[in-house]
Computed example of a mutant assay.
Amino acid sequence: MFEYHGSITVRESAGDEDEGSRLRRIVDELRAHICRMNSPYLLDLRWMNGEPFIHLGGHSNHRSAPDVLELFRHVAAIAPGSYGLLHVRDDEDPGHENEIQVLRLARGTLTEHTEPLLSPCVPALEDPFSG
């Protein structure tokens, strides 16, 4: 099972300068990228209160398209001022089968962490299997 939930605040840089048309071009490129992903799950890019945000979520039997990790890498590369979190539960990820992993995007860098509030999944989220 592969479950994920995340969001990204899209910013061209971490500074407070007016990004204007550059940010609009970045958002247009991201919108095209998201359309190519053709996700059957939640994958939304929209402007709210003058800022662009990406929201995503999904649940499939196995890690497969859309490649949401690649989307985070892509945003880090073209809009390094962006920030966000992606929570992932992948019971087929060796060494992390019983954890919620968090991908952190900040200042153009991605880091991976274990989510301590939801891990280990058994017993934090589910009862142990009693076969």
Rank of each mutant, 00 (worst) to 15 (best):
H59L: 06
S119K: 10
T114E: 13
V10F: 06
H62W: 04
P66W: 03
A32D: 15
P123H: 09
H62C: 00
R22P: 03
R63M: 11
W47D: 04
L56R: 01
L45M: 07
L86S: 06
G131D: 11
M37V: 09
T114P: 12
H74Y: 11
R46Y: 03
D127Q: 15
H5R: 15
H33A: 08
H74R: 06
H55Q: 04
S13V: 08
E115M: 09
L56P: 01
I8Y: 02
E92G: 12
I26C: 06
M37A: 11
F129E: 14
S7I: 12
E12C: 11
H74G: 03
E19T: 12
E29A: 15
E99F: 06
L110N: 06
L105A: 01
L42H: 10
H59R: 12
L23D: 05
E115I: 04
P116W: 04
E3H: 11
P128W: 03
E99Q: 13
V68S: 01
R25Q: 12
D28Y: 12
M48I: 11
I54G: 02
P128E: 07
N98C: 12
N98W: 08
P52M: 08
S64Y: 05
D18Q: 15
S7F: 14
P116A: 13
G6M: 08
L105S: 02
G6V: 07
L56A: 01
Q101C: 11
E112G: 14
L23C: 07
S64P: 00
H33I: 00
N38C: 11
G15R: 14
N49Q: 10
E3A: 15
H33Q: 08
P40N: 00
V68N: 02
R46I: 00
L45Q: 05
G81V: 07
I26G: 02
H33V: 05
P116T: 13
R24F: 09
R63V: 08
S82Q: 02
Y83Q: 05
P123Q: 14
